[in-house]
């Protein structure tokens, strides 16, 4: 087997450890402290925000317009409609700014 194959296997194991590791650590505790629970409740907003924020800063008017429209649609509609609205605005706005 090639080096690429073994590197991929090692990377896959390392990745699986990140996906199962948090649960294995937390499940060792019999009772979850309220502050830990408060922290866990904050995970979705905290982590997902970091996947957006730096991209917003490095973007231009077309991307900002797409995000603003998508955010407004998200207040009313579901995930699919907000996503399609944002993508549509992005594609149209890019025709003028790229």
């Amino acid at each position: 087997m090639s080096t690429t194959f073994w590197i991929t296997i090692a990377a896959a194991i390392a990745t699986y450890l990140t996906r199962v590791g948090g649960h294995l650590v937390i499940s060792r505790f019999e009772r979850i402290h309220p502050r830990v629970e408060a922290g866990l409740n904050a995970v979705p907003a905290a982590v997902l925000t970091t996947l957006v924020a730096p991209a917003v800063l490095g973007a231009g008017p077309a991307e900002w317009a797409a995000l603003i429209v998508a955010a407004l649609v998200a207040l009313r509609g579901g995930l699919l409609s907000m996503f399609l609205a944002g993508a549509a605005v992005l594609i149209v706005a890019r025709q003028f700014t790229v």
Partner: peptide, 22 residues
Amino acid sequence: ALGIDFLLPIYFLGLVMDFRKR
């Protein structure tokens, strides 16, 4: 031109918005 490079930030923003009631 197709905007593919910025689709994921839009999608992740949607996921962030999903938790706004918390």
